[in-house]
Amino acid sequence: MANEVLEELAQIFRAASKKMSALVSFLMHHKDASSIGAIAGFAIALVCTWRYMRSSNPVRRPKPTVKVEAPSSSSSDSTSGSSTAIESRGSQARQRGVAIQEAPLSKLTLAQSVKRQLKGGRKVTCQLLGVVLQENSTADLENHAVVRPAAADVLLELAQCCDLYLMSRVNDDASEEAILAALDQIGLFSKANFNRNKVLFCSSEAGRCSFVRQLEPDWHIDTSVDIVNQLARYIHHELLISPAPLGSMPSNVLETNTLESYFDCR
């Protein structure tokens, strides 16, 4: 389309040139001011037309060719070598990740294991009878009180990493003294710097349940199914210590056979 327009303009320019020649020869015989002005105006028109034609059809210069050289074998080798090194490092990282996923618990300390099992909980209430102590009833406390050796280390870690409260049902003051002496013997008050006032005593199961309700812990550990069920609406996590799984427990109640079997998962 543009070429056709340019061709037409060229024809007009040639025709105008012929007429211009005739007009110039005519005006040369009739020299006056008006004829000279006409010649000048016509000449200007021709110049403008010629410039427009040149601008409409600019000369296209050839684009410089860029020579692309193939990469040398040395650069190719270095590139492949770096990619191989990256893949090797990625493979090593994946292998380390797999190793961590396969056996993470074996690398935990007891303190890390206890914190892991608390799931972010900070306040814990725990029954002593049948959980920390070898004795399971108040009648057994009349003769002696002994901390279970397997539970001793876990108890010390709980005392140091969270706000721990221990509670037990007793029949008399002598039983209280026996329990305090047993806890002192494993270093609870010296090594863990545990406050003696956080060892609470009561005379009934209802009293222990009331203690827990008032303290509002994140975790409660107990052996009584009745108390665990009563507290399930109020406590976020509960751990039921039972020799055998009972089933049909609230969703926030976990079952285990001993204290250490839950917290010491190394």
Rank of each mutant, 00 (worst) to 15 (best):
T258Y: 00
L110A: 11
V66L: 01
A38P: 01
V253W: 05
S106V: 03
S76C: 07
L46Y: 00
C162F: 02
K31C: 00
G121I: 01
D140T: 00
G41V: 08
I186E: 07
C48W: 03
R148M: 12
S242G: 12
D184M: 01
S168A: 15
C161A: 05
S242E: 10
I241F: 04
P64H: 11
N3L: 12
Q160G: 05
R96E: 10
L46V: 00
V253P: 10
I39R: 01
L158P: 02
Y165I: 13
S251L: 14
G37A: 13
A145H: 08
L27S: 02
V228W: 00
A244I: 07
I186Y: 05
S55A: 12
D222M: 10
V131K: 09
D153C: 02
V228M: 13
N252R: 07
P58S: 05
L239G: 14
K31H: 01
G207M: 01
E177Q: 15
E69T: 12
E216R: 00
I179H: 13
G247Q: 09
T49V: 08
L166T: 11
I39N: 01
L259I: 02
R96D: 09
V132H: 08
H220V: 07
Q134Y: 10
A33W: 05
Q134I: 11
A111H: 04
S17E: 04
P250M: 09
E69L: 10
A15L: 01
R94A: 14
K19D: 09
A99S: 09
R96H: 06
E135A: 09
V199I: 12
R169F: 05
S55K: 10
P243W: 08
S76A: 11
T258P: 00
D32K: 10
